[in-house]
Write a protein that binds this DNA or RNA. Sequence first.
DNA 1: CCATTTTTGAACAAAATTTTAACTGATTAT
DNA 2: ATAATCAGTTAAAATTTTGTTCAAAAATGG
Lengths: 225, 225
Amino acid sequence: MENRILIVDDDVNICDLLEIYLEKEGYKVYKANSGVDALKIFKERQLDLIVLDVMMPGLDGYETLKEIRKTSAIPVVMLTAKGETFDRVLGLELGADDYIVKPFEPKELVARIRAVLRRYKPQVQKKSLEYKDLIIDADSFIVIYKGQEMELPPKEFELLYFLASNPNKVFTRDQLLYEVWGYDYPGDSRTVDVHIKRIREKLPEHDEWQIKTVWGVGYKFEVKS
Amino acid sequence: MENRILIVDDDVNICDLLEIYLEKEGYKVYKANSGVDALKIFKERQLDLIVLDVMMPGLDGYETLKEIRKTSAIPVVMLTAKGETFDRVLGLELGADDYIVKPFEPKELVARIRAVLRRYKPQVQKKSLEYKDLIIDADSFIVIYKGQEMELPPKEFELLYFLASNPNKVFTRDQLLYEVWGYDYPGDSRTVDVHIKRIREKLPEHDEWQIKTVWGVGYKFEVKS
DNA sequence: CCATTTTTGAACAAAATTTTAACTGATTAT
DNA sequence: ATAATCAGTTAAAATTTTGTTCAAAAATGG
């Protein structure tokens, strides 16, 4: 489901800029130009993350954050002016999840927001998958293959989980790096292959399913029907 | 298939630099040194993304973008000299998809382009095609002929998929090279014929459809009605 | 902080596909 | 009928993509 983000900054231009970028990323955006407005929206709406400017007239970012933290553990990314190391420490101690120094690249902010959301979201929704002789349990991070429990390292587990969540659909290495690793950069490396190899080692080919190489394209979790 | 990118900048050096980087990433690159040239190429060619400099003599980046947006939602990344937040908002409100400040790191530009393309490509979801005794499934990259699953190599698959997506329409070899391979092909070759032959071998002629040679012109995926 | 495990990225060999080029066969126009 | 094109076939060369290994970097757990 679409993530909802509240942007709080007294500079309307910054709010607008971020709104455009975040909406392009598929987020639902709310805006507030003061701490007071922010708290109002925060109480009224169901939000997933707040971007909070530190320096604002009236209720500043710290006070607003302190107020929010009285009732909620919602992820908060702080915007701070350059050079104020103290700000960062204070912000993080008050429970900010990340901070970004102005002037910032919108792209960077978007990436950080995505990273913070990644840290928080997964706990909520993942369920376990079942195929013949294979159970992938997302709660316990455990795989049961032919009745035998095994622990996979996190990346291997997530890769397997992602592929098995989308059976019979091919993903390119780039897509997998993006979806599983969260990367946004171009890399030609065999990283994905190496992980695939290890998963295959641990879960030898099966009649009913297998991780299949689609030559020239990528990999898929193929299930016989 | 290879993504096609148009670079628009009056500075030839920048065009050349970007061309080198983007080609290394596997993109097909076109270049234009003015807004007018850009619009001409945009009308002639099938493109996937445009990198557009803001400051150009004659038709500037904003005007060019406005022109493009009258007919197309193609992803556009704007290039600008170090500037103000307001510029960004303007560009983005005109429908730019991202914004990069000069001087930039080529790596960063490449990363942004990839990110923008990733956002847009999935929407153009390839769907699977169905004819009598023939299913071409673009998700799993599989062809099912008379109930039997087969895997085609990538070029064969894409060629078949393209032809079958446009039944009863004839394409010249050049068009196919352009559409499937992404080439502006230097001269004449039997490449297409060889691939057609291999597809025909794997999918023997059928009553309801066939890949037909149109003598002196090219090929078509013919469907009986 | 150290020891151990996991992840990463480069190198390279192996496998599969794609392209080329030369040749053969088919069709058309004169 | 014959020349001139155009299409089909073939096999080997060239290219691309994948699998595997390994050492170093990063993360993890005491």
